[in-house]
Amino acid sequence: MTPAEIRDAVLDILDTINPDEDLSSLDDEKEFRDQLDMDSMDFLDIVMELRKRYRVQVPEEDYDNLVSMNKTVAYLEPKMKDISA
């Protein structure tokens, strides 16, 4: 997957977790927490959806990497580059 495809994949996950949220104005630089109404349970769901959909494992000590879209994509790139979109 390319970084753009990974971004789409993450967007799709956010949409599944939080169907009422308007994601079109998401700022990739800013932390999710400051833009989306997400709690700790929702964050855990990002990790679990990644595992469910792409078999990507995110260990607990790495959760901090998933704070914003840009950081998430950067973190996932090496893990997902060999997955076909």
């Binding site: 599944t16 009422d20 769901d45």
Partner: peptide, 18 residues
């Protein structure tokens, strides 16, 4: 409908229910 905070909203999201 549309409330994002609180246990009921959390429950709906977590169970993927509307």
């Amino acid at each position: 409908r549309g409330t994002r905070r609180g246990p009921f909203a959390r429950l709906l999201r977590q169970l993927r229910l509307t």
